[in-house]
């Protein structure tokens, strides 16, 4: 089988997971006090570079289709996810311990929220530091849940690290 095509469909699968979670919890996914449940998928990026793109495209599509500020969120929100997951992947590559690798992602996620706070400051004149604070807390919580959840699942299934197996 063409491995590039397998990689493409697996990337699309992660995008779909992000979108499904996003659509399910859409009403609480935007604004300065957001609980974007789809962000629990971000720690998956540490397992393979392809998931950085999968999650980024998921965020892009979700913002484009569902955000009240579609095109602004699409640009800045997507850039934020790309930076957050990309940095997580690069840092995780240098860490050997499985759980440290995963549990570092909520910190990266929380720090990177300055981009969204800047967006809200610029377009909605929301106070930067208060917005940054609330976004950091909610993002950290979501990604911590994701890191623990996907950490346990991956430990049991090797679902995201296995290249070609279905684990069946």
């Amino acid at each position: 089988m063409n491995q590039n095509v397998v990689s493409l469909t697996k990337t699309a699968l992660v995008t779909a997971i992000y979108l499904a979670l996003g659509f399910l919890f859409q009403p609480v996914s935007f604004g300065p006090l957001q609980f974007r449940v789809a962000e629990i998928t971000n720690p998956i990026a540490v397992f393979n570079k392809r998931y950085v793109w999968g999650i980024t495209i998921g965020c892009f599509l979700f913002n484009l289709i569902s955000s009240p500020n579609a095109l602004i969120d699409m640009g800045i929100g997507t850039a934020n996810t790309l930076v957050m997951t990309g940095v997580s992947y690069l840092i995780a590559k240098k860490i050997k311990n499985y759980w440290t690798k995963l549990l570092i992602t909520p910190f990266i996620g929380a720090i990177s929220m300055f981009m969204i706070a800047a967006e809200l400051y610029w377009f909605a004149s929301a106070p930067f530091w208060i917005t940054y604070g609330t976004l950091m807390v909610t993002q950290f919580a979501m990604m911590l849940i994701g890191a623990v959840l996907f950490g346990i699942i991956e430990e049991k299934t090797h679902f995201f690290r296995n290249e070609n197996k279905t684990n069946s």
Binding site: V5, T9, I153, N164
Partner: peptide, 24 residues
């Protein structure tokens, strides 16, 4: 949620692989 997510992810991965086979 974990016992629900594991079969869901495995099922989805099967679909992804089937789709890749079909595309190839």
């Amino acid at each position: 949620i974990i016992p629900m997510l594991i079969p869901l992810l495995i099922n989805s991965m099967k679909i992804a692989i089937d789709l890749a086979e079909s595309m190839t």
